[in-house]
Design a binder for these strands. Sequence first.
DNA 1: AGTTGGCACTCTGTACAATAGAGTGCTAGA
DNA 2: TCTAGCACTCTATTGTACAGAGTGCCAACT
Lengths: 341, 341
Amino acid sequence: MLDERKSAILRAIVNQYISTAEPVGSTHVAKYDPGVEVSSATIRSEMAQLEREGYLIQPHTSAGRIPSDKGYRYFVDNLSTPGRLGPTQRQEVKEFFSTSHFAIETMLHDTSRLLAALTSQVGVVIGAVPGATTVVGAQLVKLSPNSGVLVFILSSGDVERIEIEIPDGTDEILIQEASGYIQRCLVGTKWGSACGKLDEVTDPQLDGIIRNCQSALRAAQDRNKINPSSNHVFVDGASHITDAFGAVDTVRNILSILEQQYLVVSLLKDILDRGSSVSIGSEHGEARLADCSIVVAPYSKDGEPVGTIGILGPTRMKYSEALATVAIVGNQLTDRLSETN
Amino acid sequence: MLDERKSAILRAIVNQYISTAEPVGSTHVAKYDPGVEVSSATIRSEMAQLEREGYLIQPHTSAGRIPSDKGYRYFVDNLSTPGRLGPTQRQEVKEFFSTSHFAIETMLHDTSRLLAALTSQVGVVIGAVPGATTVVGAQLVKLSPNSGVLVFILSSGDVERIEIEIPDGTDEILIQEASGYIQRCLVGTKWGSACGKLDEVTDPQLDGIIRNCQSALRAAQDRNKINPSSNHVFVDGASHITDAFGAVDTVRNILSILEQQYLVVSLLKDILDRGSSVSIGSEHGEARLADCSIVVAPYSKDGEPVGTIGILGPTRMKYSEALATVAIVGNQLTDRLSETN
DNA sequence: AGTTGGCACTCTGTACAATAGAGTGCTAGA
DNA sequence: TCTAGCACTCTATTGTACAGAGTGCCAACT
């Protein structure tokens, strides 16, 4: 724990550094920060101590100080006043969620865009993973002489679509029979355990089709487990990182991370699992993101958490604003998803 | 038309500049290019002429020359030998398309990744837009007391999903009736004209639901026209542009374009409409892409073009390789999409 | 007439020194 | 315990000199 004065100095340095991106010197703190009422010399000695304790870093001997990850962490946990959104932004969020969005996918995609626009940083939305949802509709349709598509409608409103092979010479009637049978068997069951529910049928020809469906269904679900929700990650506003970082190498590193969506998923998930909502610099173990912080919030549907939203920006970010934004968008998203029930 | 020698010199300059990214001087051309057998002085005077004619640019008085957009264009149209893929890459493409992909969306997404990996540039895939496809399956399902989802399966194998409101107190039986009615009316019709095909029914309660469906369907289709296939653009490998451009500003410009997917769609579309497959520098009228070229190829399903793939990279790119890659991936994609029929 | 070697000229990038500015750490005194 | 003052350090900027690369032009050669 830092004493009152050290806290005030650290707060002043973080605030100034966030807005100027320049190392902060003792004189600046003494002159321009109303919260610190001592001379620059005193501040200097306090700063030297803060540096020894790891809260500050001095880029070189005769430069000011910048906050370390630990410094930011202390700032976020103890010194930052909970932020509120400006009226314009409040309005923007409200308007966004009052506009009808049809497909969930589209809405989540647009939400990542909203986050990016609000914060001028990278917006990330991780989609709901089906699993505990139940099957509310099912249909098998023939597309060509030997292929078809099996469509499931889930209680979440999502649609799962699985391509299957159909034995040559299978006629339309049989397909319809199979479709009806699948519907009767699976509607009402949990999506996660659906593939076990297809019992054997007497007609050998019909049974062949059903077996095909069953194995395709199992394959699709396995694939989904191995590579969880690879098409459920939405990233927008990547160009904003060029505003925060002047070095192309840094930009490349961050872009390359954003391209590996499974990495993004696990990063955000880890933060939530740790019970936190902010991850600063090297706290997430990814070296390429050493200069970045991530702010996340979960969102729910019907009281059950189903996904995560977040923003990614430089460690030098306005945390209180970011936290407020992510929180409000998460809440609104939750409301929007749950309202129809 | 350029004479033999000018052609050889231009070719040499383009090739060298592409591989070194440095302005090319007369000495280099004379010394290291086996296709040019004259002295550097002669080359100098030819280069001066090529510059006067607009094929070359001199960054400053005492620098070598670099190709202008016009120079690249001439190179691509007349001087470039049709490229072939290396065996490793051939293998990579083959392997990619032989691996099963279930959902089309996933496959297209992965295709953009493949393009990026093959060329080390930005890969773009624009998805097939449904329209002339026919409806092969339809189902209405209730999700909550007053909302439901209407699902259409199209002959392309795509699934369209539309959320609708359901009047309070509508019971399950009525929903099923409506579902059956919609199925009877619309299965077999063209997707583009589907919403006109829902005739009036006598039962007023049933008619209410049908009307809801009809207007939702119309709204969804209109939305799709205004904002064509916004969720059908897949971009991957954006980090590669940091390899091509050292200036963060350039990177930002390009990223900001890639984020506006409708822009990407119209850019690629314009190139194909112009009957071309390469667009160089300022040829596409977007200032932010002045230093980029785009190489595209269409892909088809059952003989009918349904989408576009392409790569985006610096004007200084290996065009023959790029063209070959895009062509082969386009062909393979076409084959893969058409094979099931 | 076309080609070539030679030469003066131009421009960039780099290395180096000098300087101004910002900031520190330390110390003596209030 | 705080503060004013001072010597010191490091960076960033500016100016200068210089090497290197490349050009354009011209006279001579084939």
